[in-house]
């Protein structure tokens, strides 16, 4: 069998799709196409995200609901300093104000008091919304300046009873929440994604411009 001959056959066949003798074969070709399509779709949509992200647990569990009930609001723990900078996740010292001793009965609190409070070790929280170092984000501008709610970017984390596993992108080291849970990058809610496009879109909408580089980069 010579190569040019085969090429010719191929051309003939594509040229005569209505030929009944080839019906079974084209069905098989379609099947192969579908198998390939299905497999790659499965890989792309199901396997790929599993491979791309590594999962790890937080040092111990934490209930925002319990704490919000006890202290009343987000700002008690996630506050602004006097200079307008945002304190972020509470430090050990802040937590210790209440948790010098074990208060409740949860296993998590016991871990916290024994392993961190007693050892005077900061809790290595994995922060779901951590942006890369090149990003400057002002909580003051958004919360105080623009009057936005925490939930607009952070969703319903304040109503969580326990902490979800932290998923880290193996390539970039970013938290999965930056790209969003949806691997296609689709978003339903304003807090579903935290990529530059999302910041830009909101800025464009509310301020008329995405702003220059330094607006969000340092």
């Amino acid at each position: 069998m010579s190569l040019p001959g085969e090429k010719q056959t191929g051309r003939e066949q594509t040229g005569s799709s209505g030929d009944p003798t080839n019906k079974g074969e084209s069905g098989l070709v379609a099947l192969f196409f579908i198998v390939g399509l299905a497999a790659s779709l499965a890989i792309g949509w199901i396997v790929f995200p599993k491979l791309l992200y590594s999962k790890s647990e937080q040092p111990f569990d934490f209930s925002h609901v319990t704490h919000a009930d006890a202290v009343g609001d987000c700002e008690s723990c996630h506050f602004f300093r006097e200079d307008g900078t945002y304190a972020g996740v509470p430090t050990l010292a802040q937590c210790t104000e209440c948790h010098e001793e074990v208060q409740g009965e949860s296993e998590a609190e016991e871990t916290f008091v024994n392993e961190y409070v007693a050892e005077e070790k900061e809790v290595p929280w994995k922060i779901y919304s951590r942006q890369p170092d090149c990003v400057f984000f002002s909580h003051a501008a958004h919360v105080t300046g623009a009057g936005m709610d925490c939930a607009e970017c952070h969703g319903d984390i304040g109503e969580s009873e326990s902490l979800k596993p932290y998923e880290e992108n193996r390539l970039t080291g970013y938290s999965r929440d930056i790209w969003g849970k949806n691997i296609a990058g689709m978003k339903k809610n304003s807090w579903d994604r935290m990529k530059m496009e999302d910041c830009g879109a909101c800025h464009k909408e509310t301020m008329g411009s995405k702003g220059a580089c330094f607006q969000c980069h340092k």
Binding site: V29, F32, I34, L37, S40, I43, W45, F48, G185
Partner: peptide, 24 residues
């Protein structure tokens, strides 16, 4: 060979329709 080509085309189409290349 045609079947493999079809498989490959299917795989290509599927990959393009999946988030994999764009996300990567």
């Amino acid at each position: 060979r045609r079947h493999f080509l079809a498989l490959g085309m299917g795989a290509t189409a599927g990959t393009l329709l999946s988030p994999l290349p764009w996300k990567l």
